[in-house]
Simulated scan of single mutants.
Amino acid sequence: MFDLSSILVVVSYSLCDVFGLDPNEVDPSITVEGFAIPDPATLADPTAAAYAAYLRSAIPPIDLNYQFRKELVRDIRYWWLTGEGDVLLLWGPTGSGKTSVFEQWCARLGIPLFMAKGHRRFEPHEAFGQFVGGENGTTPWVDGPVTLAARYGLPCIINEYDRIAADRTIVFNDVFEGRSFPIPGKSGEVVTPQPGFRVAITANTNLVEDLSGNYGTANTHDISILERIVALHIGYPDDETETKLLEKELEQFSDDLLTYWLDQEGVKLSTQTGIKEGSAISRGEFIAGLVEVARRIRAQSKDGGNTSDAALERTMSTRILRKWARNTLAMAGTPEKLGLSALHLSLKKYLSSLATESTRIALHQAVESVFGVGERVNP
């Protein structure tokens, strides 16, 4: 195999700089290693250029709006430095950022990442590879993401791992042990993982139980798997982090557009200085209202830990919060043109139309209780 040391050029990054952490809270001298893969156009060797192009394409794209949480960076870094023989389980409610935190970790550090996805009918070839039809009647072997990551000494992530039936995860036992493993379906060929190979998995549950009752397709897993895992719970971000995220998300919308929409929507918002209406509401106060709606919905939801019979089966994930906020201002003309609330229309698009009727009502009540506007705005 081609020597990748000239392609995967190790670089030391400042933790604060690369992840945007506050130097008053995190020592700026703390570093973490990543890669700087050269531009293929600068490489004279065509083989090296091909590998560089391929590996650069495997680096996740950077989300400039992403806000890292220092405690997650701390825990992932610790596993990254010390847990090469352990599997990292990122678990938590839907839309909390389980996959994105690891993707953005790799994106900011220039690290190629290989990905597989779990589901009920998962087959080994989806992770390890298979023979495929080629030219002239040939059937060449194509490595899967886990095999590729092991050969290159790079990380891979298996999403929705708890959707795979427990009796189908046996193929990962040797992989999770960090030792050489046979490739299923390839006549006993064995792969010895190169240094740097790591496995992360994501799940909505801790692989043992579903406390929320929301993930009926999740499976429990054998204790032999659990003993190979380092678990990191990914909950929804705190208010400060989500506020920063929404500030970034809404940067594209001007203050003039925001004040126009606030007036047309007829928003009435309780702020620290009292009730404000329309264009008297600042951008920061509007964002605080969005975060408050998310907080109220989560408090009523199963994913938020509500165990009552009336708990909502849907919640306002961080993913949906971003979409809801962005789409609301993208539809700023809706109140004036149609007499309909952009807040409520956007909520229907991304959340309430995919909920039970009782949950739908509760979701819209949460919006109305914070922003003082119903689904139809006053003419």
Rank of each mutant, 00 (worst) to 15 (best):
F2N: 04
T359V: 15
A165H: 13
N173K: 15
L88A: 11
S57W: 00
V146K: 02
R228I: 14
S6M: 01
F114G: 04
I37T: 03
A166I: 09
T138R: 10
D238A: 12
F371G: 07
S224T: 15
K244W: 06
L363M: 07
C106L: 09
Q300I: 07
R283D: 02
Y51P: 04
G129M: 09
I111Q: 02
S57G: 06
Y215D: 06
L269K: 13
I30R: 12
M331C: 07
N136I: 09
P93E: 06
V87G: 00
L89E: 03
P112W: 08
W105V: 11
L338N: 11
D303G: 15
R151I: 14
A231T: 15
H125I: 03
R121L: 10
D63L: 06
S346P: 00
V190N: 01
P193H: 07
W80N: 10
C16Q: 02
W141M: 08
M316S: 09
R163P: 02
G95T: 11
D27S: 05
N378E: 08
T82A: 00
E247D: 09
T138V: 08
V190C: 05
Q130H: 13
G20H: 07
V367P: 03
Y152V: 13
T99A: 07
A280H: 11
E84G: 11
P195S: 12
Y350Q: 01
R314C: 14
T138Q: 10
G144Y: 04
D309W: 05
E368I: 08
V175E: 02
E292V: 09
L269V: 14
A311V: 11
T169N: 01
T241R: 02
S12H: 02
W80E: 06
A311I: 12
L258T: 13
A280V: 10
K248S: 13
T259F: 00
A310C: 03
L4P: 01
V267Y: 00
T243N: 03
Q365E: 15
T202D: 09
A280R: 10
A44H: 00
Q194G: 03
E135C: 05
W141T: 10
G178T: 08
L64K: 09
Y78V: 13
A311F: 11
E189M: 14
Y66T: 04
D174T: 15
F35C: 05
A200Y: 03
E227W: 01
F122W: 12
F131D: 04
F2Y: 14
L269N: 05
A116W: 06
Y215F: 13
Y66P: 04
V267G: 02
I320D: 05
T169A: 14
W79Y: 05
G20R: 13
Y54A: 13
W261Y: 05
Y260N: 05
E336A: 15
E251K: 13
I361V: 14
P23R: 11
A127F: 09
W261N: 06
E103W: 02
L72Q: 10
P184V: 12
A332Y: 15
L338Y: 08
A49I: 00
V73Y: 04
A330C: 02
R69T: 09
G129T: 14
I225W: 03
E135N: 06
M1I: 07
Q194F: 01
L363P: 06
Q67Y: 02
G374V: 01
L211N: 04
G266R: 07
D256Q: 13
L245I: 10
N214M: 11
W79I: 13
D174W: 03
